[in-house]
């Protein structure tokens, strides 16, 4: 098992699987980043405007803390996660199901190429990396947008010291847990797609249906995992 995994990783470097990996990073990470940036900006702006409406003041330190906590512990995992489901999971289910229907997956096996190592492993690694980067992109975008909207609405000047202070309030353990959750959820989603969503299809019309239902199920898994995590982290914080 260990030798097989080592061989898979060795094969991943300098092989066609590297192309699969780089394409998946481009697709799931680079191409999705604009949507994540805009979503983060929209959410942070809404947060600042609501805060402004309630307190009549600009972005104070309490508001910064709340925004950071909300982003680091929840939204920066969940929003990129949904974008990942909507784009990458749909595409992955369609692509892998089509390969099963047309017999391409079987042809790979007959050539002696392990479909998991060529088709799934690079996608899993790439999706995990992309989701970690999108987590950081969301965080950065949310903070910058919050300060920008605060300056525009309440006339609070953008102060470098306040921005640095905002980043300093991010707890390293929260950041690490957020990054791990992002990567783990993406990996679980890809394995789920491979094991459950793309097997047993025998005709082309089943592919679009499989993609639609598959995305729904993966989103539910995402939400359930997040709910469990939030309950656990709340319990741990309350009863250490």
């Amino acid at each position: 098992m260990a030798w097989s995994s080592l061989r898979s990783i060795r094969w991943l470097v300098g092989s066609p699987a590297l192309l699969v990996l780089s394409r998946q990073i481009y697709f799931s990470g680079y191409q999705s980043s604009l949507v994540v940036i805009l979503a983060a900006a929209l959410i942070a702006s809404g947060f600042v405007l609501a805060f402004q409406g309630i307190t009549g003041a600009g972005l104070g330190s309490g508001a910064i803390d709340a925004l950071i906590l909300l982003s680091v512990r929840g939204l920066a995992v969940q929003i990129p996660g949904f974008v990942f489901c909507a784009r990458s999971i749909t595409a992955t289910i369609s692509e892998l199901s089509l390969m099963s229907v047309t017999g391409e997956r079987q042809a790979l096996q007959r050539l002696g190429v392990d479909p998991f190592t060529y088709l799934i492993l690079p996608r899993l690694v790439a999706a995990s990396l992309a989701m970690m980067v999108l987590y950081l992109v969301f965080l950065l975008s949310a903070l910058v947008s919050a300060f920008a909207v605060s300056a525009l609405v309440a006339g609070v000047p953008i102060d470098l010291f306040r921005i640095l202070y905002a980043f300093e309030t991010i707890h390293p353990s929260d950041l690490a847990v957020g990054l791990i959750r992002s990567a783990l959820l993406a990996a679980i989603a890809i394995v789920w797609v491979d094991r459950i969503e793309t097997r047993g299809h025998s005709s082309f019309p089943q592919v679009s249906r499989a993609a639609s239902f598959g995305v729904l199920r993966v989103m539910l898994i995402y939400l359930l995992a997040e709910i469990v995590f939030q309950i656990l982290s709340f319990t741990v914080a309350r009863f250490p």
């Binding site: 066609p16 192309l19 089509l98 390969m99 047309t102 017999g103 391409e104 042809a107 050539l111």
Partner: peptide, 17 residues
Amino acid sequence: RGSLLSNITVRENLWLP
């Protein structure tokens, strides 16, 4: 038709095995 992977080029299909 399924003998070659349709989402990669012929060159990559030859390289893969």
